[in-house]
Nucleic acid binder design. Structure first.
Length: 513
RNA sequence: CGGGGAGUAGCGCAGCCUGGUAGCGCAUCUGCUUUGGGAGCAGAGGGCCGGAGGUUCGAAUCCUCUCUCCCCGACCA
């Protein structure tokens, strides 16, 4: 029996899917657009994306990759060159067929039959083919390699079933595309990007992930090897949060990306591609959200500290605002996580208590409420979003002196960042099960009444082709998927759970988004 | 794309079966009261009932088509 009155109407344990949707709307992150599968990203949601984008972009640039921008439209013919690639995408591409509208005579507009395009244009689902075209022109010699490009863009995939941030028809992402002299260098880049994503997820998003290679059946269409980072959501399901692909020479072959080597011979480039998307925000919600809304890690919070003056619409307000402004300036002069602290003095009309709950739902890391009595005592009322509730079902306010509050804010924000990560790490560790060696154990483990099944680590013999298909079918019957082969796992020392043969590596099994 | 559910005021919903031109709660606005906590009282504003056709004297309500959302599948980089 809890006296706590939560800020959301749905609890995670009651209906996780409903809870997720309530967080998205209650935290004012995004809303439906009226266009199938497309969302409007509102300022708070987009602000988080901008933070994430900036920090990721810093890392991409620091790695020596150059940004560029390619067209949203790709000629249809580009897709016909790499057979496997087109097979993987053909069913979900948006196609532009006309370039003009005319009146239909009934007050509406229709595509002008006279304005049909000679060759349809594809709205990019990913840009391998069009960037590959450019690479074939830009690369002549081994001296031009490696060529490492990145673009921030929107892409469109005509998904059957969509969910805000997790799978939308249009989404925002970065896609890195690189060309190399040989397999070794391309693989180095593929794994570099993977490690960049792993550390970014943990250091910036406070989202622990498992980095590893995807099984053959989960590879990007046309790829030789696909790697991913996988995060555990609070319902125990896995979310693929970023991917990095070694594409071999097949895309280079299709696009004609070759170079003259040191001995004067013609060689095909080895290419790689890697990307993360707005899906990371979905992962953020399902990693850090609680029954009061979102909790944004300070590193990506658009506002890390929000000051709410308790205005009374009387003569005292002026002095209170001045007191708050000094507080704001004092905090803005601090640094946290290597950057100036982002602090908002929220003077919008409205009662502080009502505004507090809005910011709780949005997940601002620290909320400072300041009333006349605080001012008299030279203190502020400080609330940490990561530990909202105190004894008695009431928000757990601290009351530091104003100057002390400002001086300590950097440390508090860093502590929140760390504690969100620790909490997520502990939850994941508590929900990874090892030592499952038989299929019937796996079946029991994931029986329907298990509320929080989490992940299971098993050993396997890495079957391929039809043998792998059979394994995938078996798992599918249990609604399970192979997530990846973790990079840092202990060597195999047992039998394959599927075939009984000698195991060669460990894999994670989980239900997935 | 298959099965199920749903679209009525900014949000959440009732009304629909048994047609007679729309209602509740929250939010908003105004006034008064209150004031260290998600305020109270009174009043007010706001909707061509997702869209298009059809039946009818008359459609939120009945019929057809269509769009969008949610859940379960299939699909999914």
């Amino acid at each position: 029996m809890s006296a706590i009155r939560h800020a959301l109407s749905v609890k995670r344990t009651d209906d996780f899917a409903q809870w997720y949707q309530e967080v998205v709307s209650a935290a004012d992150m995004a809303e439906e657009s009226g266009v199938r599968g497309c969302m409007v990203i509102k300022p708070w949601g987009y602000g988080i994306w901008e933070r994430l984008q900036r920090l990721m972009d810093d890392r991409i640039k620091a790695a020596g990759v150059d940004n560029c921008y390619f067209p949203i439209f790709i000629p249809l013919a580009n897709f016909t060159r790499e057979a496997e690639h087109v097979d993987g995408f053909a069913k979900e591409m948006a196609v532009v067929t006309h370039h003009r509208l005319i009146a239909d005579g009934k007050g509406g507009l229709i595509p002008d039959p006279e304005a049909k395009l000679e060759e349809p244009l594809i709205v990019r689902p990913t840009s391998e083919t069009i960037i590959g075209d450019a690479m074939s022109r830009w690369i002549q010699s081994w001296r031009d390699l490696p060529l490492r490009l990145n673009q921030w863009a929107n892409v469109v995939r005509w998904e059957m079933r969509t969910r805000m941030f997790l799978r939308t028809s249009e989404f925002l992402w970065q896609e890195g595309h690189t060309a190399h002299e040989d397999r070794e260098d391309a693989m180095r880049e593929t794994l570099r990007a993977l490690e960049m994503y792993r550390s970014f997820a943990e250091d910036v998003l406070a989202m622990p992930v498992i980095a590893g290679e995807k099984p053959e059946n989960e590879r990007f269409p046309g790829a030789v090897a696909t790697y991913s980072i996988e995060a555990m959501m609070q319902d125990g399901k896995a979310l693929q949060a970023g991917t990095s692909h070694y594409l071999g020479t097949s895309f280079a072959h299709a696009a004609g990306i070759h170079y003259q080597d040191r001995d004067g011979g013609q060689q095909l480039c080895h290419t790689a591609s890697w990307g993360v998307s707005t899906r990371l925000i979905g992962g953020l919600i399902m990693t850090h959200g609680d029954d009061d809304g979102l909790r944004v890690p300070p590193a990506v919070a658009p506002w890390q500290v929000v000051i709410l003056p308790m205005l009374r619409d009387n003569d005292g307000d002026e002095a209170l605002l001045a007191y708050c402004e000094e507080l704001r300036a004092g905090i803005a002069a601090q640094t946290a996580l290597g950057e100036p602290v982002r602090v908002l003095l929220d003077t919008k009309p409205g009662k502080a208590a009502a505004k507090r709950w809005d910011w709780v739902r949005k997940g601002a890391p620290v909320i400072l409420e300041v009333g006349g009595r605080d001012m008299e005592n030279g203190v502020v009322s400080q609330l940490r979003r990561d530990r909202l509730w105190g004894d008695g079902g009431k928000p757990d306010f601290a009351a530091p002196a104003r100057e002390e509050c400002a001086a300590s804010i950097g440390g508090i924000l860093e502590d929140i960042q760390q504690s969100l990560l620790s909490e997520a790490q502990e939850r994941r560790e508590a929900n990874v099960t090892r030592g499952v060696t038989r299929m019937d154990e796996l079946e029991t483990f994931y029986a329907e009444d298990q509320r929080f099944p989490g992940w299971v680590e098993v050993q396997w013999s890495r079957p391929t082709g039809p043998a792998l298909d059979k394994v995938v079918e078996q798992l599918k019957a249990l609604k399970l998927t192979i997530r990846n082969v973790p990079m840092d796992a202990a060597p195999a020392d047992g039998a394959c759970i599927f075939t009984g043969e000698l195991a060669v590596e460990r894999i994670y099994i989980a239900r997935a988004y």
